[in-house]
Design a binder for these strands. Sequence first.
DNA 1: TCTCTATGTGACCAGTTGGTCATATCAAAT
DNA 2: ATTTGATATGACCAACTGGTCACATAGAGA
Lengths: 221, 221
Amino acid sequence: MSQIVRPTFLNLPEDKQARIIEAALTEFADKGYPQASLNTIVARSGIAKGSLYQYFTDKTGIFLYIFDFAISVVRRLLVQVKESTQEEDFFTRLEKSLLAGVAFIKEHPKIYGIYLKILFDQQAPQRQELLQAVRRFAADYFHSLLRQGRARGELRQDLPLTTTTFVLDALLDRFLQAASVPAFDVSLGLDQAGEEELLRRVQELMDIIRHGLAAGKKYEP
Amino acid sequence: MSQIVRPTFLNLPEDKQARIIEAALTEFADKGYPQASLNTIVARSGIAKGSLYQYFTDKTGIFLYIFDFAISVVRRLLVQVKESTQEEDFFTRLEKSLLAGVAFIKEHPKIYGIYLKILFDQQAPQRQELLQAVRRFAADYFHSLLRQGRARGELRQDLPLTTTTFVLDALLDRFLQAASVPAFDVSLGLDQAGEEELLRRVQELMDIIRHGLAAGKKYEP
DNA sequence: TCTCTATGTGACCAGTTGGTCATATCAAAT
DNA sequence: ATTTGATATGACCAACTGGTCACATAGAGA
């Protein structure tokens, strides 16, 4: 980080820092890394171009600082959800996690936007590392939920944990995308669903995760 | 389309057309729409900048033409898989579809790349329409599989079809992404998996789709 | 008041972009 | 040999990019 932010920036009055962070976050979330314009950031935060280079080393530096900021916000949420649902059963925890995700995105659309952008931007700096950090975080989360659930006998004992982690990660991640990227969601129409419809979809999803699709005799342990 | 390609392009010798399509496909798949450089396309296909504008109206025109070309290739595959598995049971069909997808991406990485790029490129022209077309295509496919499977009694009779479609779309799509975008795949390591490991993962995935996660008594119709 | 350091500034730079256009090339028809 | 219509070309343009730098400003300590 010390290679990225200059002390000058940290000495700045907090509201000025906030203005710059906000402007940069917006721009990166809107356009992605390579298309984001420093001129726009500078104009929106009301500072001079030169000043930007007194705060950060270069465009990459700005981006990494912003991403780091975003990550820290997400991390706080996940830890909190995990702890506050410690006592509940597996499926309730899963459901609450998903709903917490939906609420988070509604509250911090730009943070989610920057994540989506980086997802397929080959040119975002350190993309590989940044993405793996995020997904690993999610994977660890699910894995831990699964282990506890299995230990309590709420889940099939023979579940392959890594594949199951993959399934959960895929389903919840995609559900969030569907709820916030209309183009993504052909079937459910989540982007303009009301609270109650969203809840119904979540429950249908949980039911499928529980019982699967097959008719007839179920798995016997 | 007539607004997009000029007749001049279609009059060109086929190998010249192919060279240009190839160069454009590569560039768009590599960089995405806004970052793709016409200069690069021109250089790689060995034609003059001016010529490009005798073939297409503008950058958007080139992109839409290429995308259209890509879509037609995908469409052919899906139709073929659907027909050739007509007689099999639901889960076998699903499994074969997924494996066909993996094979397709291996054979046409650029076509898949262009799809991934457009996925989150807010600035790709007509992005909304293009994406919806693709996803709708997939959704229709799964929906049709599901209806047949349910009619044959292979699936729970009370399955909510749209949510189930969503589940299948999410899982298979993500599986394909994991198999081709390493950063995306923390848990399974599919990108460097051998044939046999990949097959095992597919079967584990199918098992989870069949039976779900829950222990104990299964759903009774 | 003068000095010194930290901070602020915007004209400026080279490089790249998508797009244009006057001109050149060429094949067929007359 | 000449005309004609389609096709090919690359120098050129305005707009923008990330990044620089000589200079202005301000505030604290002397």
